[in-house]
Design a protein around this nucleic acid. Structure first.
Lengths: 230, 230
DNA sequence: TCACTTTTGCAACGCTCGTTGTATGTTACC
DNA sequence: GGTAACATACAACGAGCGTTGCAAAAGTGA
């Protein structure tokens, strides 16, 4: 059927809605984030990404001459920077060290931060799905790409949280037992562990109130272990 | 070289070492566990699995008529049962509820269990790599297969640990604050969170002493939060 | 030694998919 | 309005891979 030999003649079909031209790149990256997050690198097809972006296959190669690999790298950078900025914004919003919280308000603020972060898991579901694929396929991603991603993404956020933990320790609001970095990891683990487990790592999301309950429990446990009285 | 047209004539090559015949099936599953864990479902090739198992491609299809999909399901079952049995064995070894620990020995026993479990992560590296792929590709695995896996694997272990937590609570050794399942999740998260993070989810393993230190820290934090005094 | 099962090598099919070239159509800018 | 940059449709190539059939070879057991 492909060889009817009709040639480029019957191009009568009246143009799909053509938009701008520079934002195509971001549309492609955004669509690629969805498809890579859903299917992973190997399973994800260029055609699927093109369809999702409302763009022709050829356009992808025009914007990303490196093909699938370059596109994936771009998605990693774009998505992790976006989420990192959002996470840091929430951190500064709920734990502004210029105006440290009253001891009585510490749990409230930590809980607000935790809820905001857990909310980001559903707001940026594609991103976290992509992250799962990244860790699963870490052995097939060039080391420098992996390192650069870790540096600008998770490690940047972790560093900021660690600074915050250290500051809270200085203020006597918590007791990090000499290791603010460890307190950071434990905090993040406690607020997300049960949710990620119960929701199949985000595959089947939990009702809001249930997620809130589990988050609050994590914060309480953190404070039992790291509260200044503990 | 394959297309010399010589036909099946020059079969002079003197037979590779032929072994038994029934254990080929387990050899295939074991090899498939390695390859699936390393490469994931899509990337893993039947040829690679056959080579790893020291078996011809055709033999795989003789043992698993369902092809790649059936083989993957068999690997999921086989691997998770193996690890589950090992985890349960360690649990009963270090926390035998027939002979509950002295309060003074609780931390020692919890730490021993935690270290044993963390050790399994390296002993069964292929399995945990496979698990990462399972979670990343959960959307592409039939729901019943996923559920059956969860049931016989993680949930079985979690249930046993939860029973243990409840029993320790009854004995006044810890205080689960009314939710032993939550204590279980938090325990597992705390003992493994920093290790999985620092070791790139197991891609670049940590030195033994470092892993021990982080595990011990996790256990201490757990006891600060869930100790009967807390 | 002789049937019978299992394993193997090999070729081939069919399909998917990444990638590229090219001619045509469309949009933006001056 | 004309020109240059950008997008699209289409076709095609090539490689990889899952899968199957088949006949030779090797092991197994009486």
């Amino acid at each position: 059927m492909t060889g009817t030999g009709s040639g480029p003649r019957d191009r009568t079909r009246t143009a799909q809605p053509r938009r701008g031209r520079a934002d195509k790149a971001t549309a492609i990256v955004q669509a690629a984030c969805q498809v890579f997050g859903r299917d992973g690198y190997s399973r994800a097809g260029i055609d699927a990404i093109a369809a999702q972006a409302g763009v022709s296959t050829r356009t992808i190669y025009n914007h990303f001459p490196g093909g699938k690999a370059e596109l994936f790298r771009s998605v990693m950078r774009w998505s992790s920077e976006r989420v990192r900025d959002e996470q840091l914004a929430q951190l500064r919003r709920y734990l502004d060290l210029e105006r440290p919280p009253h001891p009585a308000d510490l749990e409230r603020d930590l809980l607000a931060l935790a809820r905001a972060w857990v909310g980001l898991m559903t707001d940026f579901r594609d991103h976290f799905a992509l992250v799962r694929h990244i860790y699963a396929e870490a052995g097939h991603i060039p080391a420098d790409v992996l390192d650069a991603w870790q540096e600008t993404g998770p490690r940047a956020v972790g560093g900021e949280v660690t600074s915050t933990m250290a500051a809270l320790d200085e203020l006597g609001l918590i007791d990090v037992h000499g290791d603010p970095a460890q307190a950071t990891v434990h905090f993040m683990a406690l607020i997300s562990a049960e949710i990620t487990q119960r929701s199949y790592w985000g595959v089947s999301p939990l009702p809001q109130e249930e997620a809130d309950r589990l988050t609050a429990a994590g914060v309480r446990v953190f404070l039992r272990a790291y509260g200044s009285a503990g």
